[in-house]
Design a protein around this nucleic acid. Structure first.
Lengths: 241, 241
DNA sequence: CCGGAAGTGGAATACCGATTCCGGATCCCC
DNA sequence: GGGGATCCGGAATCGGTATTCCACTTCCGG
């Protein structure tokens, strides 16, 4: 099977260009979505998910399913029964990542100082993405499991809110949108992916530079218009062949 | 064959993690490096190179060799004879890209105003990378064909010079190095890769923001130290398993 | 504690794409 | 224009990984 995905934005908006031999999913499978009936089986499914997150994070999406299976201490058969397709496995992992990120965004939103809230979230973002490397490339395929769609929408809303509040407080320039923020900081995550050991420092280094560029004072006029997530999605759709 | 590459920097410093079944190259092949003896053959080789640049640029490195062959109007056999390995084909294409980029850098260097020279190069950079998408991911594998090594070194030197001059002129902050510049702008290229149609505008949008962040005035202190290409390379080497 | 139903491991299969091979077509030197 | 030496196309081969299959466990309700 071949996978072709567009490069991501932090809070990725992108889509598999083709899902070649994807089986039409039979409604009954939906029932299986949240678990097998037997206790040991449910435990295994959980272990596979954890292993997959670890393995994909370390070796990228092309890591063979067998590696995931070994790490989880189960056979490949078990992996494939729980996730009929590698794609399905990836999506399941990504789904749980959305929840983590959403959690971070919500914590930031709880911060009373909008400027600090924004900064805090944004410093953590490339870090989060880097921790999950290839998986980040995957976040938010449009046709994702329903279970992941809801956290994702919430996340987008939270980020938009963070940006809007920071702007209202005059902390960052008014001529950018949440989509721009997503683009900029996902770029940092990508660029710093080459350097494991110094990553945290380097990432913050670049985040700081960009934050300087986002400040309201002294800003030079920008071409284009502020980008929000809806537009980002639309662009993505036009883009898909 | 499997390819595993690290994410790039604009003027990429990275390396294939493994070249599994790479044949030890027999010295005689070196002779073949710059062309077959028969006229039509040489022409074909050229057409393959062009086709490869186009196809890889559009569909990424995983585009099958067959696509390249079809686009070039030749059989796969011909492609494989000229470039014993897919990796070799990629390297050949990348080599020619270095020369193009070097040319742009030299033109920029000819500009008497250091600030303008820097800006000019840097605005063009993500554009260049985006035009070649996946290929940019490839630039500068350490063990690249000798023919590509020299343009690359020249390019790195030219970029360092552009940065140094801009700094001497007080146009950009002093606490960054050429490696930082490479990182930052390659990030833009990556992030904007999702949006074909609006890319040029979006890219410039983000480049402007980052340029604002790179200005000398009002700069906040950065963690870490200025990064030059030598350090970048060293980090890459430590990183490789 | 029994008898299936539900699950398991991992060998076998299905696919896909890079690389190789070779009978036949093309060039080019004389 | 003839005859090799060079090249060509594309079918066959090979290698690698996702997915399927099934004989064999393990669980669990009664």
């Amino acid at each position: 099977m071949e996978y072709r995905f567009r490069i991501p934005t932090i809070i990725g908006i992108m889509v598999p260009l083709e899902a070649k031999s994807a089986k039409a999913r039979d409604p009954r499978d939906a029932a299986a979505t949240d678990g097998p009936r037997r206790a040991d089986a449910r435990r295994n499914r959980e272990r596979v998910l954890e292993a997959a997150e670890a393995v994909f994070g370390e070796s990228g999406l092309k890591a063979p399913i067998e590696d995931v299976a070994r790490r989880a201490g189960v056979g490949v058969g078990t992996v494939c029964r729980n996730f009929p397709t590698k794609q399905a496995l990836v999506e399941a992992v990504v789904g749980s990542m959305y929840e983590t990120l959403l959690h971070e965004a919500e914590q930031a939103l709880a911060d009373p100082d909008p400027a600090h809230a924004f900064e805090r979230f944004v410093v953590g973002l490339p870090d989060f993405q880097a921790r999950h490397r290839a998986l980040a490339d995957q976040m938010a395929s449009e046709n994702m499991l329903a279970s992941a769609a809801s956290p994702r929408e919430k996340l987008l809303r939270a980020v938009s809110e963070l940006v809007a509040r920071a702007q209202a407080a005059g902390a960052i320039r008014a001529d950018i949108g949440p989509g721009d923020v997503s683009m900029l900081f996902s770029g940092v995550a990508h660029a710093t992916a080459i350097v494991d050991d110094l990553q945290p420092v380097m990432r913050e280094r670049y985040v700081r530079i960009i934050l300087d560029g986002l400040r309201a004072r002294d800003a030079t006029a920008l071409p284009g218009r502020p980008l929000d997530f809806a537009q980002l999605r639309r662009m993505r759709q036009k883009h898909a062949k």
